[in-house]
């Protein structure tokens, strides 16, 4: 099995400093966060430029070239509601270290992102969700089938669609957590890849609790066969858990210094 793939989530307009950096085309805050995440063990970096309705095309091109230029063609997940911006990003993207990821499609209004990924030979994150939150795993599986078929129609390989079970916040939806984990097993048993915004499970919890919950969740998700997650790689506890699970799963060969690698 391949190593668990960490997609670093910290280059996002939800952080005010990054939002400002995108608006002003200021490289420094973006490069700093990129370096922190890569040093901590991220494989992919997510580039979330937000809705970016006005200047998305320019911002995404700028960000892709900035990050790949500085960090040896680091592979990126392009994350925006502006589809033209994703295509623009891919047009300047270097694939030497991995295909671009389109973030993300769902089985409702954003299903066209699958077509976009297919047309551009990209990986696509496919959220197994329609309108509102799926009521059970049968419904999630229906969305998965819809997305998979759409991907096949678009000429994609199944391995390039990374299914997202949609992690739900534990505070308020505690009774749904095992459903999500069981759904990850269903994805894995179908031989498909998976990813997702795992830290959503700890949303609203005190700051010191979140790394503990996220680590427990990632360990259980990896046990179920999850192959990737969109997380904060600078959460040391989480990264240590992922590396340890990779050893236990025989995804990486153990050495005493494995946490430093």
């Amino acid at each position: 099995m391949a190593k668990f793939i960490v997609i670093g989530e910290r280059i996002s307009v939800t952080a005010p400093s990054i939002n400002k950096a995108f608006a002003e085309r200021d490289p420094e805050p973006i490069l700093t966060r990129a370096k922190q995440q890569l040093d901590a063990g991220a494989t992919y970096l997510d580039v979330n430029i937000g809705p970016a309705e006005k200047d998305g095309v320019d911002v995404m091109k700028w960000a892709v070239q900035l990050l790949q230029g500085e960090f040896d063609n680091v592979p990126l997940a392009l994350d925006t509601a502006n589809m033209a911006a994703i295509e623009a990003g891919i047009s300047v993207y270097n694939r030497a270290k991995g295909k671009p990821i389109v973030n993300s499609a769902d089985a409702a209004g954003r299903i066209g992102y699958i077509d976009l990924a297919g047309a551009n030979d990209a990986i696509c994150i496919a959220l197994c969700n329609g309108e509102g939150i799926a009521k059970d795993n049968d419904e999630r599986m229906t969305y998965l089938q819809t997305l998979l078929e759409r991907g096949m129609m678009a000429g994609m390989e199944a391995e390039d669609i990374w299914f997202d079970p949609l992690f739900l916040v534990t505070k308020g939806m505690q009774d749904k957590q095992m459903d999500i984990l069981e759904f990850i097993k269903m994805i894995s048993d179908s031989g498909l890849n998976s990813t997702g915004g795992l830290s959503n499970n700890s949303n609203g919890m005190p700051k010191h609790i979140r790394p503990i919950m996220d680590s427990a969740m990632v360990a259980m998700a990896m046990m179920q066969g999850m192959t990737s997650a969109i997380v904060n790689p600078n959460d040391l506890r989480l990264m240590e858990t992922i590396k340890s699970c990779d050893v236990i799963k025989n995804n990486t060969l153990y050495a005493d210094s494995y946490l430093e690698l």
Partner: peptide, 11 residues
Amino acid sequence: DINLAKQLNVL
């Protein structure tokens, strides 16, 4: 010792 083989390379 496969783990030591890797560890030495790391070190």
